[in-house]
Every structure is written in C-alpha cells, then in structure tokens.
C-alpha cells in the first residue's frame, strides 16, 4: 500500500484481478426538469474498500448515494439517468426491490422500526421480503448479524424490547445489523454518525473498518477527519459534479483540484 501512484485507486483485493464491484457511468439525478442535483458522475468502486463521499451540503453526495439503491424511484418527480453496474449487472434495468437488497442502506438518523422488537428488527428484511425461516435459521441470522456489529453482548438479554429502547449509537448499529442480515453486496451509508455522540461515532468507525473485510462500503460524510480516518478512497463533489476521486491519503496531501483544496483547508464548507 505504500507507493501509490497518482490516481491509482486503493484496492484491498490485491489478489483479485482489480475488477470493480460497482461502476457508475454518467449518472445524473434531477429533482425538477433542468435542475440537476448530480451531474454526469462516472466512477469505479473496488471491492472491500471504504469510499468516502465528501462535499459541502447540497453538493449532491447523498443524492448520488441514494441513486445507487434506486431510492429515487420512490419519488416520481426525481429522475435518474445513466448506468450503474453492480458486479457487471446494470441495476437500472433491474427491479428496484432487488437492487435495494443488494445495496443495503444505512441512514443519517437511526431508523429502527419502532413497533418491532430488537430481534424482529434484525429480521425485518426477511419479513418484509416474505421469506419464511425456521426458528433456528432466525436465531442464527440474528446472532451473526448482531455480532457483526458488536451489539450482541449488549442486547442478547433484551431481544424482545422495542428497537427504540436502545441508545442512538446502538440503534444505528441495529440498523446496520438489519442491513447486513440480508447479505448485501455493498453498504451505502448516508452520514451514519452525524446524529451520534463521539463515543458512538468512534464505535461505528471501528465497526466499518472491521466490516470492510466482507463488504464494500460507500459512506457519505461531511466530517473530513472521519473520511481521513476510515476511507481508502475519497470522492469530492461540488455542485453536483464529481470534482476529484482519488486515494484518500493522496487527496488529503496533494489535492489535484483547487476546489478540493479549498474545501479541505476549510475555506468553504
């Protein structure tokens, strides 16, 4: 990992053939005709990496992230164009329901289902997708998913309590567990720590570094030090454009664009 040549993105899967897992091709999103929130973004994301998407608020970073699991399809006024390939398959041609399962999403504010128990929250994806499981399968999935987010020991005795009974940080980890339970290809995280205290934030960051072994993670953040701490590659977006996409260390030390530099040095943001 030492001598990275310029513009060669970090790829953790050194043994593999450097196949990107996710390819964005000319992705644009508009909220109203003629008003583009994301403008012609193309990028390759490599497996088992954490990619941070940064930029000032309103730059389109969340919008881009939500395009990847077809969240915009829920709102008829929003239009997405371009192609997104997940493991070579164009998700724009797939059923959105399938896409959303393959690209799990974690939101800005923890949103466990308030009427479900912790146990049921982890299994919510199965219940919502009408997949029947035996008791043993359920127990196994719940335990594995909660262990993966380091929540198992904290909640194993209160499984039947409501999800909303947990603290904010725990709720967010529960939401990650809920997503992991469906075994997605990529994890999309929309400022997952912005509503949390520093201690919880720290825990989630550690968790992400751990999850990288098994998943590919895209994280939207407006916290530059967070991006520096955990991400392998970084995107900088400004006014809907992808200005710069480079290995994180390189971007923070030698930004290629003036806008990136201004943002990273705090001139605007």
């Amino acid at each position: 990992m030492e001598n990275i040549t310029e513009n060669k993105l970090n790829n953790q899967n050194e043994n593999s053939t450097n196949e990107p897992i996710l390819q964005l091709r000319n992705v644009s999103v508009s909220y109203a005709p003629g008003k583009k929130a994301v403008n012609n973004v193309s990028a390759d994301i490599y497996p088992n990496t954490i990619t941070a998407i940064m930029g000032p608020s309103g730059c389109g970073k969340s919008t881009l992230l939500r395009a990847i699991n077809r969240m915009h399809d829920l709102y008829p006024k929003i239009e997405t164009t371009g192609d997104i390939y997940l493991k070579g398959q164009n998700i724009m041609e797939m059923n959105p329901m399938e896409v959303r399962r393959l690209a799990g999403m974690v939101f800005q504010t923890p949103n466990p289902f308030p009427t479900m128990s912790i146990y049921d929250n982890v299994l919510a994806g199965y219940r919502l997708n009408c997949i029947k499981l035996t008791r043993e399968e359920k127990d196994e999935i719940v335990q594995r998913s909660l262990m993966a987010v380091a929540l198992w020991d904290e909640v194993k005795d209160v499984m039947n309590r409501r999800g909303s009974f947990l603290s904010g940080g725990q709720q967010q980890r529960l939401c990650i567990a809920r997503t992991l339970a469906l075994k997605p290809e990529v994890l999309l995280m929309d400022e997952p720590t912005s509503a949390l205290d520093p201690v919880s934030t720290n825990k989630i960051e550690e968790l992400l570094l751990d999850l990288k072994k098994n998943f590919t993670i895209l994280i939207v953040t407006h916290n530059m030090s967070q991006a520096a701490r955990i991400s392998d590659n970084s995107m900088f977006m400004y006014l809907g454009d992808l200005v710069e996409y480079a290995p994180t260390r390189q971007m923070f030390t030698k930004p290629q664009h003036k806008k990136t530099e201004e943002y990273l040095t705090g001139i605007f943001g």
């Binding site: 699991n69 969240m71 829920l74 329901m97 399938e98 959303r100 399962r101 799990g104 999403m105 939101f107 800005q108 504010t109 949103n111 466990p112 289902f113 308030p114 009427t115 479900m116 919510a124 994806g125 219940r127 919502l128 997708n129 009408c130 939401c175 809920r178 997503t179 469906l182």
Partner: peptide
C-alpha cells in the same frame, strides 16, 4: 409517520404494500 422509517423498509427491498402492512399500519395503529 416519518419518511425515514418508511425508507428503512424500502431500502431492505420491501414493496410499498409490504411497507404499509409491516411498518406504517403497525405504527399508526
């Protein structure tokens, strides 16, 4: 019912009807 909770269900692959059945109706019950 906040959109964020409903989006949580959609993001897991649920249809609108399934979201209503398992999330919205129980919450508003």
């Amino acid at each position: 019912i906040p959109d964020t909770v409903k989006e949580g269900a959609y993001s897991l692959g649920a249809t609108r009807a399934e979201t209503i059945r398992h999330v919205s109706l129980p919450m508003a019950s």
